[in-house]
Design a protein around this nucleic acid. Structure first.
Length: 304
RNA sequence: CGCGGGGUAGAGCAGCUCGGUAGCUUACCAGGCUCAUAACCUGGGGGUCGGUGGUUCAAAUCCACCCCCCGCAA
């Protein structure tokens, strides 16, 4: 099949790689290069870079609302479009441009977690499973009929990064399967149950400052969900310290109080306490707590 | 030229202002002790102090340039 692929980050790239093995990807749409990284360098998206390296036509329109962009798109005469974390809203003419439509890879078991950050929100909420839904694109956000699903368990070890990678892999497999059976799947597409819809709000950097008034249980989930990005952190004597991994510890104390800072790092929360297992100090690489404490001790102060 | 922190033993750090025999924790090796613990005691090995050049009687430390790692912002 002739496929147009629309995607931007790593998550989309794993799908693109697999599709390109089985189908004819005639054009890739991705976000235009952004100013990013130290030194504010103009950086091409992962999908952009890989596509160029593999000789696939790349387009990076700022918007798809213009008639010119829409005509250029339609002129590709593809069979179908696959969208995965693209980053631009698709107007109706784009959605309807190709005969077999426009399908999307979404990182949750819809209708739960429509929206921008389904992977992290599932962990944060304490869900015991997540997954991939392949669905038709419609104008309303992530509301299209569902074609194919796959599940992944969320365990106590599941971090945002792990789940992201698992779902990227699963998404890649399912999208290839969906393309192979597209007509059959379309004939039995399933509507989403609107009463079960939840929304996964975009992650705001402000959320990553730890509020020790929350329970240790809630904070541990946030720490896992937001590892490695944006990573939950606290300020210790003006220094930003990210917690990458922590365990719940059955101790209590004034919220934010460092109960132990030499043999271990244990911080009291609203309910119980967190024993930090892995952290990253500003300017340093991430380290296990044992490594940190070999050369750095925390005083028993109260973190605000 | 976006802002900033850092590179010293395998790992984590101190020492740098104020140049003068490189130190701490841990890991490792050997011996002892122990039912057991991130155990304890004794002894030991391990470093061209990121690189190059400069200043100096003397540079981890001061100066210049370069390489590498990371945090923030976006």
């Amino acid at each position: 099949m002739k496929v147009v692929f629309m995607g931007t980050p790593e998550f989309a790239l794993s799908a693109l790689k697999k599709i390109a093995k089985k189908h004819d990807v005639i054009c890739v749409y991705t976000r235009e290069p952004q100013i990013a990284g130290r030194g504010n360098k103009l950086t091409k998206s992962p999908v952009h870079q890989w596509s160029e390296e593999n000789g696939i036509l790349v387009r990076t329109p700022k918007t798809l609302r213009s008639p010119e962009a829409q005509k250029e798109y339609a002129d590709l005469r593809a069979d179908i479009a696959v969208v995965a974390a693209y980053g631009l809203i698709l107007p109706q003419p784009i959605i309807e441009a190709f005969p077999k439509g426009c399908i999307n890879i979404h990182g949750s078991l819809l209708p739960r977690w429509r929206g921008a950050a389904p992977i992290q929100r599932a962990i944060e909420a304490g869900d015991d499973k997540s997954g991939i839904t392949i669905m038709n694109i419609v104008q309303a956000l992530d509301a299209g009929d569902m074609l194919l699903k796959g599940e992944v368990k969320i365990t106590k070890e599941t971090t945002g990064e792990i789940l992201h990678d698992q779902l990227a892999e699963l998404g890649a497999e399912l999208i290839v399967q969906a393309l192979n059976q597209i007509d059959e799947l379309q004939s039995k597409a399933e509507k989403q149950n609107e009463s079960l819809v939840t929304y996964a709000a975009k992650i705001d950097k402000k959320e990553s400052l730890i509020d020790f008034n929350l329970s240790a249980e809630e904070l541990e989930r946030k720490i896992r969900a937001f590892n490695p990005y944006p990573a939950m952190y606290f300020e210790y004597k003006g220094e930003r310290i990210k917690i990458l991994k922590a365990e719940i510890c059955h101790q209590n104390g004034k919220a934010g109080m460092i109960l132990e800072g030499e043999q271990a790092l244990i911080i009291a929360c609203g309910k119980e306490a967190l024993s930090v297992q892995e952290l990253q100090r500003a300017g340093k690489k991430k380290m296990t707590i044992k490594e940190v404490l070999n050369g750095f001790k925390f005083e028993n102060i109260v973190l605000s």
